[in-house]
Design a protein around this nucleic acid. Structure first.
Length: 775
DNA sequence: CAGTGAGCGAGCTTCCGCTTGACTT
C-alpha cells in the first residue's frame, strides 16, 4: 500500500509522474472535474446566496469511488490539479467529495511535467486557495444563470430547443456581423500598373505606387510611357531581419493546422490528443507560450547538433493575451531529437508541424538585404518602384515559416523577387507595361480557426472549449460551414508593348468560398433578438468585464456572491420583462407585392425553416414556398422568391413505379413506396431522371446490405449489423453493442434477445440510452 | 422526422469548463 496518493487531472500526466516518483507514491487522475451543478432548475438557490447543488455525473461515479478508497488507505493525499481557477476548484471538489481532512491533504502545483518541477512542487506544498475557488464558483454560477435563463426566453420567443450563452452567442454574433459587412460591401475598381524591364534573366518587375480609378487615366499614363525614357532615380539597400513565432498554444496550433494541413479545429484536437497520449507532445490544451528550462536546453542541444551553433538563439516568449492562465507549457515535442514520428499520416503531419514550430522558436533570426529601386519616367512625375530581397542567412527559416490568413487587402505578390545588379542613374529598357483592373475585396468570412483567433483576442472561451463551441453553434443550426460558388466577373487589361497599347477583357471568378462560416436565418434572428433585448450579455466586452471581477474575487478583494447578486438582479428583471413584452421573432421581412395579384409577399422563419408567403396570414388562399440552400431571408430578392413558386413541389413522378422526387422538410428526396432516400448534394431535384433515381436507390441499398451481417427467422426485427464502430444488434428501436469476445455471426436469436432485454432494462451507457429514446 | 407554416398544451430542450472514452441514419 502506497503511503501517498497524488491526484492530477489527466491520466497521461499521471502515468508520466508516476515514473518520476518512487514506490511511495500512487498517482491517479480525476479525469477533469468530478462534480457539476445538478441539471435541474434548483441547482442554484437564488434566494440563499446562490447556494449550489452539486452531483457526481454517472460517468464519474466509478473514478470517484476508486479515489475515495485509495484516499482512505493513504497517509497523505496530494492534490495536484492545474494551477488555475478550474484546477483549484477541482482540488476543492476532491477535498469535499473524498472526505479529506486538512491534516492529511496537501495542495501542490507545477507548470511543467519534468522531474525537477514535480519534486520542487512536493517540497513546497500549500493549502487550497479558497479565493480562487470562489472565483471559479462565480464563473460557473454566472454561466449557468445566463445560459439557463436566456435559453428558455428563446424557446418562447423564437423556437424550442435553442440555446444562448456567454460564449456561443458572441461567436454567432461575430459571424452574423461579418456576413452583413460582406453583403453591404461595395467593391471599387482601380487600375494597377506593373512594368517589366529588361529581358530574360535580367528582367524584373516594378509597380506604380498609386492606382487609377478611371480607364482614361490609366490609358493616358501608358501613352505617356510609350515615349518615355526610364532611369533609376534612387537605389537603396538596407539590411532586414525576421524573427520566429512563439511555440504553439491551442489556438495558434488550430490556426496553423487549418492553414497548412487543412484540418478542422476538432480534427486538430483529436490528432493532438493521440500524440499527447502516446507521450510524443506536451499537453495540447494550453494558452501558454512558455517552455520549461529542460525543454530550452533540449532544443538548444538539438539545434546545435543538427544545424550548428550559429542557428541557435535562446528565446523566452511572453503571452500577449490578458486572459491567459498559463497552467501548462506551450505545446512542444516531448523529445526534440525526434524530428518526426511514426503513426497515421495525420499524426505524423501534425507532429512535424509542432516540432518545427517549437524548434524554430529557439533559432536565430533570418537576415535579408532589401533593395528598393525608384524609377523615374521622363514624361511623368510619378515613379515606379521595384523591390528586391536577398536572403543573407536563413536562420529559423531553415525549418519553419508561419503562414498568414488570405485576407486584409494589400496582399502584394512577388515580394521576394531578386533584382539584377543595378546602378543609380542607369537607363532601363521597358519590355512591357500593363494596367490591370483590380477590385477591392470585402472583409474575409471566418474560418473555424480564424473565429477561434478572434474569440481568443476577445478573451472569450478557453483552450478546452474552442472546438466544442464551434460544434455547438453548428449543431444548433446558427451557422454552417460551407462551400459557395463564386460569380464570374469581367476585368480589363491594358497592355503597352512595342509602343502600342492594346485592350483585352478577361474573366475571373470572385467570391468563391471554401470551408467558411455562414450564418443561417435562425442564427441571424436569434442574434438580433439577443442584441435587441440582452445587449449587455452579447457585448464583445462582457466576458472581459466579468473576468476582471473574477480576478478581484481571486485576490480576495470582492465577495463572489455580492458580485453575482449585482449582476443577477438587473439581468433577471430584463429576462422577465422580455418574456412579458417582447414580440415573437420570426425575422419577417416584406419583399413587396406580387406582380400579378398585387398581394403582399413576405419571408420569415416558420416551423420548418424559412419560407416565402404570398398573401396576408389570414388570407384563405395564401401560398408558400421554402427557401433553398444558400438563400437567406435578409438577402433574397423578390425575383428569386417568385422563382421558388415555379418549382413544383413534386419535382418528378415516375409512372407505375410508385416513385416520386420531391422537396421535403429536409431537402430533396426520392420516395419509393414507403422508403425515403435523400438526394446527394449537388443533384438538382428537377433534373433527376428515372435511371438516376434508381441508381441512387440501389446505391443506398447496397450500402445497407453491406452492413447487414445476419437476420433471424424468429423475428424480422432482429438484425446483426456492421456499423462504423463494429458489429451491433438492432432490435426494433434498440441498438445493442456486441460485447467483446463474442463472434457476432455465431450469436443465436435468444442470446441477442437477452442482450437487448438487458439493455432495455438498464441502459448502462448514456449514449445508448439517448439513442434508444431518440428513435 | 417527409407533401406543412392557426392555437392549445404536456413534456422536453439549455450554460461553460475540466477530462477521456464511446459513439452505430
Amino acid at each position: 500500500m502506497a503511503k501517498n496518493l497524488l491526484i492530477v487531472e489527466s491520466p497521461a500526466k499521471a502515468k508520466t509522474i508516476e515514473g518520476y516518483l518512487g514506490k511511495d507514491f500512487t498517482v491517479k487522475s480525476s479525469y477533469g472535474h468530478i462534480r457539476d451543478l445538478v441539471k435541474s432548475e434548483d441547482a442554484i438557490d437564488i434566494a440563499h446566496n446562490f447556494e449550489q447543488k452539486y452531483e457526481i455525473p454517472a460517468d464519474k461515479k466509478q473514478i470517484v469511488s476508486e479515489l475515495k478508497k485509495l484516499a482512505k488507505e493513504a497517509e497523505m493525499v496530494w492534490l495536484a490539479s492545474d494551477e488555475d481557477r478550474e484546477g483549484e476548484a477541482i482540488s476543492w471538489h476532491l477535498y469535499e467529495t473524498l472526505g479529506l481532512k486538512e491534516t492529511n491533504t496537501k495542495r501542490i502545483v507545477f507548470h511543467e511535467i519534468t522531474k525537477p518541477a514535480i519534486l520542487r512542487a512536493i517540497d513546497n506544498p500549500r493549502t487550497i486557495n479558497y479565493n480562487l475557488v470562489n472565483a471559479q464558483q462565480a464563473r460557473r454560477v454566472l454561466d449557468r444563470l445566463v445560459g439557463f435563463e436566456l435559453s428558455p426566453v428563446l424557446w418562447k420567443k423564437v423556437k424550442p430547443s435553442l440555446s444562448a450563452g456567454r460564449v456561443q452567442s458572441v461567436a454567432v454574433r461575430l459571424i452574423v456581423d461579418r456576413e452583413r459587412e460582406v453583403n453591404k460591401f461595395q467593391s471599387e475598381a482601380a487600375f494597377r500598373v506593373v512594368a517589366i524591364f529588361g529581358k530574360g534573366r535580367e528582367s524584373f518587375k516594378a509597380e506604380l505606387g498609386e492606382r487609377f480609378d478611371k480607364q482614361e487615366d490609366a490609358e493616358k499614363f501608358l501613352q505617356d510611357c510609350a515615349a518615355a525614357i526610364f532611369n533609376i532615380n534612387s537605389l537603396e539597400t538596407k539590411p532586414a531581419k525576421r524573427a520566429p513565432a512563439a511555440p504553439f498554444t491551442t489556438s495558434t496550433l488550430q490556426q496553423e493546422a487549418s492553414r497548412k494541413l487543412g484540418f478542422s479545429v476538432s480534427r486538430t484536437m483529436t490528432v493532438a490528443q493521440r500524440l499527447y497520449e502516446s507521450g510524443k507532445i506536451t499537453y495540447m490544451r494550453t494558452d501558454s507560450v512558455n517552455l520549461s528550462d529542460t525543454a530550452l536546453n533540449a532544443a538548444a542541444q538539438e539545434i546545435n547538433s543538427a544545424y550548428g551553433a550559429q542557428y541557435h538563439q535562446l528565446r523566452k516568449y511572453k503571452t500577449k493575451s490578458a486572459s491567459a492562465q498559463e497552467a501548462h507549457e506551450a505545446i512542444r515535442p516531448t523529445y526534440f531529437n525526434e524530428h518526426t514520428t511514426d503513426g497515421e499520416p495525420a499524426e505524423k503531419r501534425l507532429y512535424e508541424l509542432i516540432w518545427k514550430r517549437a524548434i524554430a522558436s529557439q533559432m536565430s533570426e533570418a537576415q535579408f538585404e532589401r533593395t528598393v529601386a525608384k524609377i523615374g519616367i521622363s514624361t511623368r512625375s510619378e515613379e515606379l518602384v521595384a523591390n528586391g530581397e536577398v536572403m543573407k542567412f536563413d536562420g529559423f527559416l531553415k525549418v519553419y515559416l508561419e503562414s498568414v490568413d488570405e485576407d486584409e487587402d494589400n496582399q502584394q505578390d512577388g515580394d521576394n523577387a531578386i533584382l539584377p545588379p543595378l546602378t543609380k542613374g542607369q537607363q532601363l529598357s521597358l519590355t512591357d507595361m500593363t494596367a490591370t483592373e483590380r477590385f477591392s475585396r470585402p472583409p474575409a468570412r471566418y474560418t473555424e480557426a480564424s473565429l477561434v483567433k478572434k474569440l481568443e483576442e476577445l478573451g472569450i472561451g478557453r483552450p478546452s472549449t474552442y472546438a466544442p463551441t464551434i460544434s455547438t453553434i453548428q449543431n444548433r443550426g446558427y451557422v454552417v460551414k460551407e462551400e459557395r460558388e463564386g460569380k464570374q466577373r469581367n476585368f480589363r487589361v491594358l497592355t503597352l508593348k512595342n509602343g502600342a497599347i492594346t485592350q483585352v477583357e478577361k474573366t475571373e471568378t470572385t467570391g468563391a468560398e471554401k470551408g467558411k462560416m455562414f450564418p443561417t436565418d435562425i442564427g441571424a434572428v436569434v442574434n438580433d433578438f439577443l442584441v435587441q433585448h440582452f445587449n449587455g450579455i452579447v457585448d464583445f466586452h462582457f466576458t472581459a468585464n466579468v473576468e476582471k471581477q473574477f480576478d478581484d474575487i481571486a485576490q480576495g478583494l470582492e465577495e463572489w456572491t455580492k458580485m453575482i447578486r449585482k449582476f443577477y438582479d438587473p439581468f433577471h428583471k430584463e429576462v422577465e420583462s422580455t418574456i412579458l413584452n417582447a414580440d415573437r421573432a420570426s425575422g419577417e421581412r416584406e419583399l413587396g407585392v406580387h406582380p400579378v395579384s398585387g398581394k403582399k409577399m413576405s419571408v420569415r422563419i416558420g416551423r420548418y425553416g424559412p419560407f416565402v408567403q404570398i398573401g396576408e396570414s389570414d388570407d384563405e388562399d395564401k401560398v408558400y414556398a421554402s427557401l433553398r440552400a444558400g438563400q437567406m431571408i435578409e438577402t433574397i430578392s423578390l425575383e428569386e422568391a417568385l422563382e421558388l413558386f415555379k418549382l413544383p413541389k413534386k419535382a418528378g413522378v415516375f409512372e407505375d413505379k410508385d416513385m416520386t422526387v420531391a422537396i421535403g422538410k429536409f431537402g430533396p428526396y426520392i420516395r419509393h413506396n414507403s422508403a425515403f432516400y435523400s438526394l446527394p448534394k449537388g443533384i438538382d431535384p428537377l433534373e433527376v431522371s428515372e435511371d438516376q433515381a434508381i441508381e441512387i436507390i440501389l446505391e443506398k441499398r447496397k450500402k445497407d446490405a453491406e452492413k447487414l451481417m445476419k437476420t433471424f427467422d424468429e423475428n424480422p426485427d432482429m438484425k446483426i449489423l456492421n456499423g462504423r464502430w463494429g458489429p451491433y444488434i438492432e432490435f426494433g428501436k434498440l441498438n445493442v453493442k456486441i460485447p467483446k469476445g463474442k463472434e457476432p455471426l455465431e450469436l443465436t436469436y435468444d442470446e441477442c434477445k437477452a442482450l437487448a432485454d438487458a439493455m432495455e432494462k438498464e441502459p448502462k451507457k448514456a449514449g445508448a440510452k439517448k439513442f434508444a429514446k431518440k428513435k
